[in-house]
Write a protein that binds this DNA or RNA. Structure first.
Length: 289
DNA sequence: CCGACAACCTGTGAGC
DNA sequence: TGCTCACAGGTTGTCG
């Protein structure tokens, strides 16, 4: 489900609700995620305070601290979470939480300093269990899952020049290159389809046969579409919800994704359908060359 | 290094 | 109604 805009939407929601709260307890109802939740996960995070919530690629990083001498907070470590295809984090107000659902795999109980009550509940639900939950101390760069990621698309490090330089030896389709986390992170199947349409580039075009000028256009379109999607609260195709359990609306603005069999919104030509790396690609062969 | 593919899971919708 | 099949937003690992 979630690509960068959806994860960023969740991050903002969690940040608004959880910063400054302390994890009083964690219950892991099912350890079987993408990787098994470590046996010492609960012991490592309980008692920590949520200092910041950051995003790197599609990972959420909960930066945790503990009370040191004289109540000075000291860095404790990072809770690293990924939503996979179907993961969701939902925060429930104390006393107003619904029954646990199927696939609610973890539940965090959080408290505000100064009062033991009320409790806030943070639930992680993930039907397909492609998501993950880790705890680590130390530097991000020492984490295998974070060590080899390319630049964030919404930073100045991501440019058309970067794309151009990094694709000189790539003869495969640009669409697959764009979805390669070593080249740029956060662009999944939906936004790869959409940004290529907006940039007028055919998804099957060999990555090393695209000019610098066209890559500059593509980098701009990627930034624009991700920002627009974040502003719309992400896309809800099926089951994406933010930290309050509400859907996003950006899917209403798709030009091509999921529109196979329909016509191009720009030129009215029938959209075409193909597959790259097992993923559905939709394009307009008139608008995209 | 690059690229294709299977694998990890459950749920859903289409077609018969 | 019920069965089977294809497919779904992500990422890793293996193999050629």
């Amino acid at each position: 489900m979630p690509e960068l805009p959806e994860v960023e939407t969740v991050r903002r929601g969690l940040e608004a609700k959880l910063i400054g709260a302390t994890i009083a307890d964690v219950s892991v109802r099912d350890r079987r995620l993408r990787w098994p939740v470590a046996e010492d996960f609960e012991r490592r995070v309980v008692g920590s305070r949520v200092e910041r919530i950051e995003r790197r690629s599609k990972y959420l990083l909960f930066r945790l601290t503990r009370a040191g001498p004289n109540d000075v907070p000291i860095t404790a470590g990072t809770l690293l979470a990924h939503l996979g295809m179907t993961g969701s984090f939902i925060v429930h107000e104390a006393g107003a939480a619904p029954e646990l659902r199927t696939h609610d795999h973890l539940e965090f109980q959080l408290v505000r300093s100064g009062s033991a009550l009320p409790l806030t509940l943070l639930r992680y639900n993930d039907p397909r269990r492609f998501g993950s939950m880790h705890y680590f101390g130390g530097e991000d760069s020492a984490q295998p899952l974070l060590a080899h990621l390319g630049p964030e698309p919404l930073t100045d490090a991501f440019t058309g020049e970067h794309l151009y330089e990094q694709t000189r030896r790539r003869t495969g389709p640009i669409k697959q290159a764009l979805m390669d986390n070593g080249l740029v992170v956060g662009v999944g199947n939906i936004y790869a389809n959409e940004s290529l349409f907006r940039a007028g580039i055919h998804p099957a075009r060999a990555a090393n046969r695209i000019s610098l000028a066209r890559y500059e256009r593509l980098a701009r379109e990627v930034k624009t579409i991700l920002n627009e999607a974040i502003a719309a609260g992400g896309s809800t195709l099926k089951d994406f919800v933010n930290a309050s359990g509400e859907p996003g609306y950006f899917q209403l603005d798709y030009f091509v994704y999921g529109r196979e069999g329909e016509v191009c919104k720009v030129c009215a030509s029938p959209l075409k359908h193909m597959r790259h790396g097992g993923r559905a690609t939709v394009l307009c062969s008139v608008c995209q060359r």
